[in-house]
Amino acid sequence: MTTSAPSATARPFDAVLCDVDNVIRFYDSTPVAELERAAGLPEGTTASVAFHPEQLDPLLLGKTTKEQWAQAVADRLGDGFPLSGPRARELAGALARSPFWADEDVVSALRGVRAAGLSLVLVSNAALDLGEDLAAMGLEDLADHVVNSALEGVAKPDPEIYSIAAGLAGAAPERCLFVDDHRENVEAAVALGMTGVHFRGPEDLRGALAFLDR
């Protein structure tokens, strides 16, 4: 769903700024869920601990590595649940190593952005190893630039990270299309004058990029 309408021109945008996780990249939670069942924990327990801001924010701001994050998650699991140290570390490690893949429909649509001459910038709240993960998916050349919160020290929805991305794209905010699966991140982009797309599936992206086919 597009939350603000682009102007009716042949080329309404000069740049597309796009999130990574849950837009391009998706994770397989099956290994963690199986370990949680074996440990007698409700499915999703590990993620609820790991993605609490107290645990997650240092990772996304580059203040800790993924290995340090996993250890902190294991410590919290061991303290808050009837788990042995080895079982807690197994769960945290499995989450940190969750298999992931790229949605080929989304990747194809984004490759079309650059083919049409628009700038594409990935804007992600991610760990320090995002570049390695993109390479593992064969996407190191997908975008013109990658803005990673862990490297910039600032994360969405802070306005600064949007300004960094627009600057790298060489585009004014009102000429940027911003795509993200979190509504608050989209709303922050719209507040800066960008056109925001709340991503819930590839059809949302295809709809926003329909102007490329005209």
Rank of each mutant, 00 (worst) to 15 (best):
C176S: 04
E132D: 01
L120M: 10
L118T: 15
M194W: 11
R183W: 04
N148Q: 08
A169P: 09
E132A: 10
I161V: 08
E174D: 15
P157D: 12
P159E: 06
G193S: 00
N148T: 07
A135G: 13
S149Y: 01
V146F: 08
G138T: 15
L192R: 12
D133H: 07
L177H: 07
R200L: 08
F199Q: 06
L134V: 01
E203K: 05
M194E: 11
V154G: 00
A150I: 02
A172K: 10
D181H: 00
S149C: 05
L192K: 09
S149Q: 04
H145K: 08
D144E: 15
E203N: 02
A188G: 03
R200E: 14
G153I: 11
V190G: 12
S163A: 10
A116S: 13
A127C: 04
A172P: 01
E187W: 05
G153K: 03
L168P: 07
N125L: 04
R175S: 13
A116H: 15
V179R: 05
R175H: 09
A189V: 08
S149I: 06
A210D: 15
L151K: 07
G117N: 15
S119A: 14
S163P: 00
C176A: 12
L134I: 07
R175M: 14
L212V: 05
I161P: 01
G201S: 12
L142D: 14
G131Y: 05
P202A: 11
L192V: 02
P202E: 01
E160N: 04
L168M: 13
G117W: 14
A127N: 05
S119Y: 01
T195P: 03
